[in-house]
């Protein structure tokens, strides 16, 4: 049973790190068309995430792969139940990734404008739908003995939508903070304005989200059992507040890290509420998918634990190193002059 708990934690960590990292590049993708006015500015915005988005997205692949390897039954049901939502996310991510690479390589305004739309749609749809999906998972899906009774539209219930909007707001602000520390000139000024402007709405939606969760589900049951855990959702709100505090003082890097901590804390809050479920059933608790009834065998979990303990720290180390090598602000002039930029 220890391995299942270990893997529950690892599962949560993988998703949380994914949202922390891809969160800012999704946010940047959503903001690009609004913060950047000229083509040079758009290229500047894209180039702030150019070297990173691909490596960030692998956290999603790894989260998916880890779900498959550690909790195959959950993987099977999670992905087939959420088929339409995942399909949209897939197409969005596909077009977005290709857009970064292709945008600068074609001819004419129309070409660029089409890829600009792809970048916006490809960034906002995953942000929204991941929020909707996780909101519904936290709340529980309608599963009973005969299977799943939901549709794409039943996922778009008020709570699911609230959760989607919350994710969008969170990533918008995360992206704006990233642009505030990675750009210079007018784009930087606009990004700084956006990040401090977005913080009140983010804190507002965070509070509504964390309050609303109390109603449709047993969200706070685990917190009632171990009241100290309430510190985690409080940390999420405090993180946003700290970010607000720091932006007001021009400490953009600190604000960005506070925002990172908040995203992790939000996901941790959700994961704590889920435990020991992975996908709770909203209509028949006997059919909830738990870490115990949907996990791989102890042998497989042991092998996967060894792999994860050996390699995940290495990945974190070299990704951290890459961020260090490519640190510093970019400028429109620099990006336009550099032949290797997007």
């Amino acid at each position: 049973m220890e391995y299942q708990v270990t893997w529950f934690v690892l599962w949560g960590v993988l998703w949380a790190v994914y949202f922390m990292l891809d969160g800012f590049d999704l946010g940047v993708g959503m903001l690009m068309n609004f913060i950047a006015r000229s083509d040079g500015e758009k290229r500047l915005v894209i180039n702030t995430i150019g070297p990173f988005w691909d490596g960030n997205e692998v956290w999603l692949i790894t989260a998916g792969g880890a779900t498959f390897a550690a909790f195959p039954t959950t993987y099977a049901y999670m992905f087939s139940y959420l088929y339409p939502a995942l399909l949209i996310i897939l197409f969005a991510l596909i077009f977005r990734g290709v857009a970064f690479e292709f945008r600068g390589k074609g001819e004419g305004d129309k070409w660029k404008r089409s890829w600009d739309i792809a970048i916006f749609a490809g960034s906002s749809l995953p942000a929204l739908l991941f929020g909707v999906a996780f909101g519904n998972i936290f709340r529980g899906l309608p599963i009973d003995a005969s299977g799943y009774h939901g549709t794409l539209f039943s996922l778009l219930n008020p709570f699911g939508l609230l959760s989607g909007v919350f994710f969008v707001m969170m990533f918008l602000q995360h992206g704006a903070l990233w642009l505030s520390i990675k750009t210079d000139g007018e784009v930087r000024a606009r990004a700084e304005k956006a990040s401090s402007g977005l913080l009140y709405p983010v804190i507002f939606t965070a509070v509504i989200f964390l309050t609303a969760t109390a109603f449709p589900s047993k969200f706070y049951d685990n917190f009632a059992k171990a009241p100290l855990l309430v510190a985690v959702p409080m940390l999420a709100v405090l993180g946003f507040a700290a970010a607000k505090f720091m932006t007001a003082r021009g400490k953009w890097k600190g604000a960005f890290f506070a925002s990172c901590a908040s995203i992790i804390a939000v996901m941790a809050t959700g994961m704590i509420s889920l435990y020991p479920n992975l996908i709770p059933s909203s209509i028949d608790p006997a059919h909830s998918l738990t870490i115990f009834n949907s996990s791989s065998s102890p042998y497989t979990l042991k092998i996967m634990t060894i792999v994860a303990l050996l390699f995940v720290p290495v990945v974190i180390a070299y990704q951290f190193w890459v961020y260090r090598v490519l640190k510093g602000r970019l400028t429109v002039e620099g990006v336009v002059r550099d032949k290797h930029s997007y």
Binding site: G65, F68, A69, A70, P72, Y75
Partner: peptide, 17 residues
């Protein structure tokens, strides 16, 4: 995925990692 995930999921997860 349900029937073989215990063994088939591992190489996929390892590939990503």
């Amino acid at each position: 995925s349900k029937y073989v995930g215990d063994i088939f999921g591992a190489p996929l997860a390892i590939e990503a990692t």
